[in-house]
């Protein structure tokens, strides 16, 4: 256990010293401000037109209220999170190969499985911290915009769905670690993440999203307009299975494949 904690410390230090925290924070900061902007426009389209935020040709759908706002945030994290959380995992694993520092992690008294696990734990913790940041900032922006129909049950339900979607999206980052390890760098996992996102949209559009892991968080967020329970057994199984395969696959790759 102490070795795992040590490795988490090491991986955490490397992550926090890099540019990844700044880049990912900035990237996800757009979500609450984007959501707040749309709520502002929907709340008072005439004022928005007067201020020049929209043109006369704007076609806006939806209503300005807290449930809609939380849905918007949740959908954004379910989709944008695939890219940003994937980027985090891509960097944590890929950089060891691109910077050629992986050698220092392989012939040491600390088991490789512990090192891989620590990397995933740090990736998860940072991504979850980012999610909380988006949620809190989103709440503040929502209050500043004075979105109507706030209530505690709405907020707690919205927060629950948001965090559940975040966790589902975060858990789908483990295959990214595997691709980074096999591809030995940043680019293959970034390409994989982009492909996963594109396929997720297609699969959701053609009605097979329930079976494609990367479509599931977006379906749970309500992006198709339909209702998809957060903890649908089939969807949860698919996501957990994908996540587990990614984790175990990465550990096995580090333990048995030629590394250098």
């Amino acid at each position: 256990m102490s070795r795992l904690i040590t490795c988490i410390y090491i991986e955490g230090k490397k992550l926090l010293r890099s540019r990844t925290p700044v880049v990912t924070t900035l990237a996800l900061t757009m979500i609450p401000f984007m959501g707040g902007f749309f709520m502002f426009v929907l709340k008072d389209p005439a004022l928005a037109l007067k201020l020049g935020f929209i043109s006369t040709k704007a076609q806006l759908l939806g209503s300005a209220d807290w449930p809609s706002y939380f849905n918007l945030l949740t959908q954004a994290i379910a989709i944008g999170g695939i890219l940003v959380f994937g980027f985090v995992t891509s960097w944590i694993f890929g950089r060891e190969y691109s910077d050629r520092t992986v050698v220092d992690l392989l012939a040491v008294p600390t088991p490789r499985s512990i090192i891989v696990l620590a990397k995933f734990i740090v990736a998860t913790l940072w991504c979850f911290a980012l999610s909380l940041y988006v949620l809190i900032l989103g709440y503040i922006v929502g209050k500043l915009v004075n979105i109507p129909a706030w209530s505690f049950p709405v907020t707690s339900q919205g927060a629950y769905k948001f965090l559940a979607c975040s966790l589902l999206t975060i858990s789908l980052s483990t295959p990214v670690g595997l691709v980074a390890s096999i591809g030995r760098g940043y680019l293959p996992p970034l390409a994989f993440t982009t492909l996963a996102l594109v396929l997720a949209q297609i699969m959701a559009a053609i009605g097979y999203g329930h079976y494609f892991p990367w479509s599931i968080p977006a379906l749970v967020s309500g992006i198709t307009g339909g209702s998809h329970p957060v903890f649908d057994q089939t969807s949860l199984t698919i996501v957990l299975l994908t996540s587990t395969l990614g984790l175990v696959g990465t550990i096995l790759w580090w333990q048995y494949a030629d590394q250098y």
């Binding site: 040590t6 490397k14 600390t110």
Partner: peptide, 16 residues
């Protein structure tokens, strides 16, 4: 991104 000391400290920790 880590200093010389930090790089060595990292190895120190990994090696127990």
């Amino acid at each position: 991104e880590l200093t010389v000391f930090e790089n060595l400290d990292l190895i120190r920790r990994l090696r127990g």
